[in-house]
Design a protein around this nucleic acid. Structure first.
Length: 114
DNA sequence: TTGCTGACCGACG
DNA sequence: CCGTCGGCCAGCA
């Protein structure tokens, strides 16, 4: 579709490539799609990701410090945290334990050019 | 159409 | 360490 060029769709495309049990940051995605200063928009895209037909693993996107800043958008309780835990990622005080170990940087792991 | 408002980030004081 | 600001761009009143 012609909407593939849209910012949001680029975000969704990259987000879907985050491997199970790994995480990345809003800023990393923004940089990767060539819009380094649009990290906030990545968050906004995640907010709308449930409207997409294809699944978007929004719980695998956190802020650059590994904190679950978007958890409140998954529902009342700890849905985001539980999803991460189910993938083997430990969370303490709304932050991913050993964040560096699980961090997945699209710029280093992918070879797609936008 | 204008003008907010964000699940962010880096820079500055 | 803390608060603030500009930049990004889609959606809504």
């Amino acid at each position: 579709m012609q909407h593939n060029d849209h910012f949001f769709n680029r975000v969704y495309q990259v987000a879907r490539l985050i491997p199970y049990g790994r995480v990345t940051s809003y800023g990393a995605i923004a940089r990767y799609i060539g819009s380094a200063q649009s990290a906030r928009m990545v968050g906004w895209a995640m907010n709308n990701s449930h409207t997409q037909k294809k699944y978007v693993p929004a719980h695998r996107v956190v802020n650059k410090n590994g904190m679950l800043t978007g958890k409140r958008h998954f529902g009342g309780s700890n849905i985001m945290e539980d999803l991460l835990k189910s993938e083997g990622i430990r969370v303490e005080d709304d932050a991913i334990v050993n964040f560096k170990k699980y961090f997945w940087d699209p710029a280093k792991e992918l070879e797609i050019d936008f």
